[in-house]
Simulated assay, not measured.
Amino acid sequence: MKKILLASAVSLLFGLTACSKVETPANPAAKAESVQSQSQAQYQEGVHYRIVSGIDAEGATVPFIVEYFWLGCPHCQHFEAPLQAYKAQQPELGFVRKHAILNESWANDGRIFYALQQTNNMDHFADLFDLYKQGMTQQRFDDFFTRNDIDKEAFLTIAGQDATVIAKMQQSLKEMTDNKIHSVPAIVVNGKYLVVPHDDLRSNEAYFALVDYLQTLAP
Rank of each mutant, 00 (worst) to 15 (best):
L6M: 10
A9I: 00
S11C: 05
S11T: 09
S11P: 02
L13K: 05
F14A: 07
G15N: 03
A18F: 09
V22W: 08
E23V: 08
T24Y: 03
K31C: 09
E33I: 06
Q38D: 04
A41C: 02
Y43V: 06
H48K: 01
Y49P: 01
V52W: 10
I55M: 05
D56Q: 05
G59F: 07
A60V: 01
T61K: 14
P63D: 11
F64S: 11
W70N: 09
G72P: 08
H75Y: 14
H78N: 07
F79P: 08
A81L: 11
A85F: 01
Q90E: 10
Q90H: 15
V96D: 02
R97K: 14
K98H: 14
I101K: 12
S105T: 11
Y114P: 03
A115P: 13
Q117N: 11
N121Y: 00
M122Q: 13
D127P: 00
F144A: 03
F144H: 01
T146C: 05
T146V: 15
D162W: 04
K168T: 00
S172H: 03
M176A: 05
K180H: 07
D199R: 10
L201W: 07
R202E: 12
S203T: 13
E205W: 00
F208P: 01
A209W: 00
T216E: 03
